[in-house]
């Protein structure tokens, strides 16, 4: 893959925390290019900074130093260092261009599965816009639920779903606003092996059919081995980069 395919680029990312007057360096000058349409897995032992890196890439956290560049469709953002963006713009990028899948699904228990999937659209649009396009949003949500294999669960509350079904619903939610990149933090970490493998297949299928880029932090060697690229982290840096 050449540099034209790079959708997201992180340069010299440092992240330090101060705890009890002691400065802890979690990330030590990481460079990372994420290519359009790939599945990138980041593996490593606990505490090496995988999740910290994912949070920084997902604009949930800011690096101490370093730059982030994202190949956005929005010209004002394309050339910008994402670390310097204001809070509202970063929130907007998270909503429109990124998707998130968490280890513990984090579906909102007060909403049905369908409403959970629709939530990113509700955040993106005003009431008038949402009501005007509601039929289209619902059609897309139903399509996503069908694609992830739980169309019959659309009106169920998340609490009545199995772990695998919840993660499928979370993946559908992450895809609602047609993001460029989906960040997955241990997506199979809370699932049994069989269910985990089904989630692997689903991610591969979505990547293949929708062309969505997946960045996954995982302990799951099985899932990591399915990725186009696997990066191994140790002590805040990448120690291997394999295709």
């Amino acid at each position: 893959m050449n540099s034209e395919n790079v959708i997201y680029s992180a340069k010299k990312i440092h992240k330090q925390y101060r705890m009890n007057r002691v400065t802890i360096s979690v990330l030590k000058g990481l460079d990372l290019d994420i290519r359009r349409g790939e599945i990138l897995s980041i593996v490593g032992h606990s505490g090496v900074g995988k999740s910290t890196l994912l949070n920084i890439l997902g604009l949930l956290d800011a690096p101490t130093t370093g730059t982030l560049h994202y190949s956005s469709q929005d010209d004002s953002i394309r050339e910008a260092d994402l670390t310097g963006l204001d809070m509202v713009t970063r929130a907007r990028i998270r909503n429109r261009d990124f998707g998130f899948v968490f280890q513990f699904y984090h579906l909102l228990p007060d909403l049905s599965v369908m409403e959970n999937v629709l939530l990113p659209a509700m955040i993106l649009h005003s009431r008038t816009q949402y009501k005007a396009g509601e039929r289209e949003f619902r059609r897309r949500a139903e399509e996503l639920l069908e694609r992830v294999g739980i169309p019959a669960r659309r009106d169920f509350p998340p609490t009545q779903l199995s772990g695998g079904e919840r993660q499928r619903a979370a993946i559908a939610r992450a895809l609602m606003n047609s993001p460029q990149v989906v960040f997955c933090d241990e997506p199979t970490g809370n699932l049994d092996t069989v269910t985990g493998e089904k989630i692997h297949e689903l991610i591969l299928d979505l990547n293949r059919t929708l062309g969505v880029t997946f960045v996954m932090v995982t302990h799951d060697e099985g899932l990591a081995s399915l990725a186009h690229r696997k990066l191994t982290m140790r002590d805040g840096i990448f120690v291997s980069d394999g295709n």
Partner: peptide, 15 residues
């Protein structure tokens, strides 16, 4: 570089 706020952010999102 500080980018400007996205112009299409709704004031009152539906959620």
């Amino acid at each position: 570089m500080q980018a400007s706020t996205s112009p299409d952010v709704p004031s009152f999102p539906y959620f």
